[in-house]
């Protein structure tokens, strides 16, 4: 591209107007800077403000209305319970975390290759895909007791339930991501003489990554649900177990403490997956393109 050297009227008129224009530029830049700073403050400030308001309302509302703590404990009581039982919550939280991570890891380890097989092998796809989709109609929660019968009260049934719930979105998103590549990209690869293997790993798989991560983000939140369901059904460890025992002894503050601990685990894991996505797909604009496909 050749640059055009025509002088703008402002330049031709001399330095006076040039400095005036520079002042306008500076003003526009400054106002943009202020606006973005304000927007950033608001993005963080408003949610915090709302949470603080809700907590205050909760605290004084329950006290003023005389709601008994076993029905709805005020936040201070929940905090006290959390502090009093922190080592116990930590211990069980760790157990739940291990189950979630194993279940999620398993769903990635099995889900992604399964999706590849579905994509690469049409006969396999035709036989397995309908089965896979209809298997999703089976409520996994209902299968959980069966897993206890089969695998006992240990770690395994929890991991399996977490896996069972989490792996579906990973399979579907990966398969869709692999499928939905621009046709021209493949034609191009063929005209370059790129081997089938190289086309898959250099073009198709990276193209699918944003969608795959979309599936993983859904899966990690589902894995949390799966692990807790597993703990509900049997066993003596994990935050689900804490919830059950707290419920049995009408210790509602502890129940809430357990829910908060679970939420913290869930959010932390979600952020972890998002971090992994950032590392795998360094450019925000590329991650953005998959936002449409993300249904969570």
């Amino acid at each position: 591209m050749s640059t055009v050297n025509a002088r703008s009227p402002g330049e031709a008129a001399g330095d006076g107007q040039e400095t005036a224009l520079a002042a306008v530029e500076a003003r526009v830049q400054e106002s943009l800077r202020q606006r973005t700073a304000r927007a950033r403050r608001a993005a963080l400030g408003y949610p915090i403000l709302v949470v603080v308001l809700i907590v205050l309302l909760w605290e004084y509302g329950t006290r003023a209305a005389g709601v008994p703590p076993f029905i709805l404990p005020p936040p201070t009581l929940i905090a006290q319970s959390l502090i009093a039982h922190w080592s116990m919550v930590l211990h069980h939280g760790w157990a739940t975390l291990v189950e979630i991570l194993l279940g999620f890891g398993l769903s990635v380890l099995i889900g992604v290759p399964l999706a590849m097989a579905i994509f690469l092998w049409p006969a396999f796809s035709r036989s397995v895909y309908p089965l896979l989709v209809s298997s999703q109609a089976v409520p996994k929660v209902a299968v959980a007791p069966l897993f206890v019968v089969w695998f006992g009260f240990g770690l395994l049934p929890k991991v399996l339930i977490a896996f069972l719930i989490a792996f579906f979105p990973i399979v579907i998103n990966t398969a869709v991501g692999l499928e939905s590549i621009e046709r021209e990209k493949i034609l191009l690869a063929r005209s370059m003489g790129l081997s089938a293997l190289d086309t898959f790993f250099k073009i198709r798989l990276p193209s699918a990554l944003p969608t795959v991560f979309g599936g993983m983000k859904i899966a990690i939140t589902l894995a949390v649900v799966g692990a807790v369901v597993g703990e509900f059904v049997g066993g003596e460890e994990g935050l689900g177990y804490v919830l059950l025992t707290a419920n049995g002894s009408m210790d509602t503050p502890l129940l809430f403490a357990g829910v908060i601990a679970l939420t913290v685990v869930g959010v932390a894991l979600y952020l972890l997956v998002e971090l992994a996505e950032r590392l795998a797909i360094p450019h925000a604009a590329l991650r953005q393109q998959a936002r449409g496909g993300e249904t969570a």
Binding site: E184, K185, L188, R190, S191, M192, G193, P206, H283
Partner: peptide, 18 residues
């Protein structure tokens, strides 16, 4: 079979975004 002794340009640039 697909010719490899050529260059192709499509209507869309078909660049790899990464």
């Amino acid at each position: 079979r697909p010719q490899t002794d050529l260059g192709i340009v499509f209507q869309s640039p078909v660049l790899l975004e990464w």
